[in-house]
Nucleic acid binder design. Structure first.
Length: 725
DNA sequence: TATACCTGGATTTTT
DNA sequence: TCCAGGTATA
């Protein structure tokens, strides 16, 4: 069967996908079906077997991590570097195009990328400058509107509306765009839109790239938005072949503009496209796959796919009903402890949840038992306040017209330029169509400011100019070092006390060494100055999340960020109506279907064991909520799920529905204990009251002890005492 | 200009 | 409930 080494060890479908000839190709790759492997082998196949130069291949991913991994794996497979191959994120590649053709798209050579935080601040200021009530026009909403329009490929002039609300939004969009253009600023959506316009409107450029890229490969295609898809179509032209890999069942980013429909659209637009389904799963047990298949089967409009494995059934899925979120957390932690005692590593266990707010209780429970853990999705390096301050100074050096950067640092650290002064500068800038930098200069030289303010602004201008002199012949690391010292940023954070301030000082120093170690060659942006390249790198790759405190740690993350990962043991916490599916998505069928896909994604992360937990009572934003188990759990086949704990069966709660919530807070008249309460036993340690029966001196109480499991005890003899968390 | 208080908002995330 | 961001106050 193995005609070629690159096909070795691949199943039939995978081989077909790897060795597919020139026709367009859709690979519908189910979870755990070896998708990345196929993509990597296909690229290697094109180069090695079909003799395409790496130069003629373009591969697109959604994250830098995926791009780096893919390049690494292709190189390892081929045993040679493929530097001339373009591989990167949509944004990274668009950026590359814009740098190479900045003149054609009307951008200054030193244009800067702003992240969504910068974007929001900028919009907020513009709303103020339009004298709009910022309560009625929240910056967030306008930002959402602007990015949405850009993702659809629409400029303000394309928007025709009689809706007064939208007219105002359009006006904000218009002003925002003018401000960005004047300052040489490009947001994330703008990268894509402008690169698209470049290819669409400039025939020479378009044909150049169409001639170059004979093979386009797009990963995670279900996550593409309109403009990204339009981009792919333009580059594909008439003669190049396109391979897209994706899974409609794992489309979980519709809320940020991703269009699953693009997959179907691809089949319509690219004649003769072949579809190959990868349905054999190499990750999970049959029990998990059967349940996942059953859940996702409730969605309509699927392209259709059913995962299977030739491996074992494995353990059934466990379902645990907790009284509240604290007890849920304790149960999960007790299970992790048991699992670790059986010789497993903490890092092989993951706790997944729908919303970040859920992590807190879980953390407390882990902390309580001294179990190391790691939370994904915190602030990343280049997003930290002190780093953004420093980057703003660097941006100012690269581009004096960068208004967003000036706004951020002109009074950081404070040098006596308050709101009044700033308002005057902003006003001047607006009146005379100048950047803030030029306006500030003008006001100083024309004595338009009072003595104290004038001196303050002049000293800032002097600082920036002095720093700028250094950029001429200093290395990047030296520039950064001078910058944090001379600007007073370092001193400012050094003067603050507390652990937080210490970390900030460390981070600033870390930034300097990042600048020192920054290797221009790695960026493939040779035509840029080191400073500009570094800034682009900082904007496009927000960097690592906080450093791991422990090597071997339990992994905590949202269901969304778990996509693409796998763990032997997976807990899905909070599988409750109202939380998962979330309340907001319950009314709209489309959004509910997306929640279901999220459930499918979560379940298919588990390799050996999947545990679902929910809390009948949960505190959300300070309010108690009563929830029933998620509909998704009810969609799983009964024989693949087993309930870990039988429900307590109190007598007087029938009217409260299936899950008898009302009893949770009631104290048993005779015992003085209540369901869900924490108690301590001399011998067994701490545990949670699960159930009780009988009355008077004979009454017995069931307790789930953290360390020894569940036991029935006679209340009269057990000598239980209440315990805290 | 720094600090104390108050208000409102609160899935999900990458670039 | 908790956080950030804005406003009021010294």
């Amino acid at each position: 069967m193995s005609q070629h080494p690159l096909l070795d060890g691949l199943n039939d479908k995978q081989q077909q996908a790897v060795s597919n000839d020139d026709s367009h190709l859709l690979v519908l790759a189910g979870a755990g079906s070896g998708k990345t492997r196929v993509l990597v082998h296909r690229i290697a196949w094109l180069i090695q077997q079909r003799q395409f130069s790496p130069y003629s291949i373009l591969a697109v991913t959604f994250t830098n991590k995926a791009a780096a991994e893919m390049r690494g794996r292709v190189e390892r497979l081929l045993g040679s570097n493929v530097r001339s191959m373009w591989i990167g994120t949509f944004h990274g590649l668009a950026h590359r195009l814009l740098r190479a053709h900045y003149m054609d798209v009307g951008l200054p050579q030193n244009f800067q990328i702003i992240d969504s935080d910068d974007q929001q601040r900028l919009i907020k200021r513009l709303i103020k400058s339009l004298n709009l009530d910022d309560k009625r026009w929240p910056a967030k909403q306008s930002q959402w509107y602007i990015n949405g329009k850009k993702d659809e490929g629409l400029r303000p002039q394309h928007i025709d509306t009689y809706d007064p609300t939208e007219q105002t939004l359009k006006q904000i969009y218009q002003l925002y765009q003018e401000s960005c253009d004047r300052a040489g600023l490009v947001d994330f959506a703008e990268l894509l839109l402008r690169a698209h316009e470049l290819l669409r409107d400039n025939r020479t450029v378009r044909e150049h790239y169409q001639r170059r890229f004979r093979h386009l490969l797009v990963d995670e295609f279900q996550d593409t938005n309109s403009i990204q898809y339009a981009w792919v179509r333009l580059l594909a032209g008439e003669q190049n072949s396109v391979t897209i890999v994706g899974d409609d069942d794992q489309s979980i980013y519709g809320w940020r503009g991703a269009r699953v429909e693009n997959i179907q659209q691809f089949l319509d637009d690219f004649a003769g496209a072949k579809t190959i389904r990868l349905e054999q799963n190499y990750r999970s047990t049959a029990a998990i796959l059967n349940a996942a298949n059953a859940v996702i089967a409730n969605n309509s409009d699927r392209l259709g796919k059913e995962l299977w494995t030739d491996g074992d059934d494995g353990e059934p899925i466990a379902l645990y009903a907790a009284f509240n979120e604290m007890e849920e957390a304790r149960y999960i932690v007790s299970q992790i402890m048991a699992w670790q005692e059986q010789g497993n590593a903490y890092q092989d266990a993951a706790i997944l949840y729908r919303s970040n707010a859920q992590s807190r209780v879980l953390e407390e429970a882990l902390l309580h038992q001294r179990i190391p853990y790691r939370i994904y999705g915190g602030l990343r390096f280049f997003e930290r306040q002190e780093i953004k301050d420093a980057l703003a100074y660097l941006r100012l050096l690269a581009n004096r017209d960068d208004d967003a950067a000036i706004e951020r640092v002109i009074n950081t650290p404070s040098r006596g330029i308050g709101n009044r002064t700033m308002d005057m500068i902003r006003q001047t800038a607006r009146d005379r169509q100048l950047s803030l930098w030029d306006a500030a200069n003008l006001m100083v030289s024309e004595a338009m400011l009072s003595g104290r303010a004038k001196n303050a602004v002049a000293s800032f201008i002097e600082l920036a100019t002095r720093l700028d002199d250094h950029t001429i012949d200093f290395s990047l690391g030296r520039i950064a070092d001078e910058m944090i010292k001379q600007s007073g940023l370092l001193a400012m954070y050094e003067a603050e006390k507390g652990e937080k301030a210490e970390t900030r000082v460390e981070n600033l120093k870390e930034l300097v060494s990042a600048c020192e170690n920054f290797n221009l060659d790695d960026t493939e942006q040779e035509q840029m100055t080191p400073l500009a390249a570094f800034l682009a790198h900082a904007a496009l790759e927000a960097g690592e999340e906080q450093a791991d405190e422990y090597q071997d740690a339990v992994q905590l993350m949202t269901l969304h960020s778990a996509k693409g990962l796998e763990f032997p043991l997976v807990f899905m916490a909070g599988v409750e109506e109202g939380l998962f599916p979330s309340q907001q998505s319950m009314d709209e069928p489309g959004r509910l279907a997306e929640e279901r896909r999220l459930c499918y994604v979560g379940m298919t992360r588990a390799m050996q064991k999947l545990v679902l937990t929910y809390a009948e009572q949960r505190r959300i934003y300070g309010q108690e909520h009563f929830h029933t188990v998620s509909r998704f759990v009810r969609e799983m086949p009964a024989d693949s799920v087993y309930e870990v704990r039988a429900q307590a069966t109190p007598t007087k709660t029938e009217s409260y529905g299936r899950f008898h919530h009302s009893v949770s807070h009631e104290t048993f008249e005779q015992t003085g204990f209540s369901l869900g309460q924490r108690v301590r036993h001399q011998k067994f340690g701490e545990g949670t009251v699960l159930n009780y029966e009988g009355s008077g001196p004979q009454s017995r109480i069931q307790i789930n002890f953290d360390n020894v499991g569940s036991k029935w005890l006679v209340v009269a003899y057990a000598r239980l005492e209440p315990a805290g968390f």
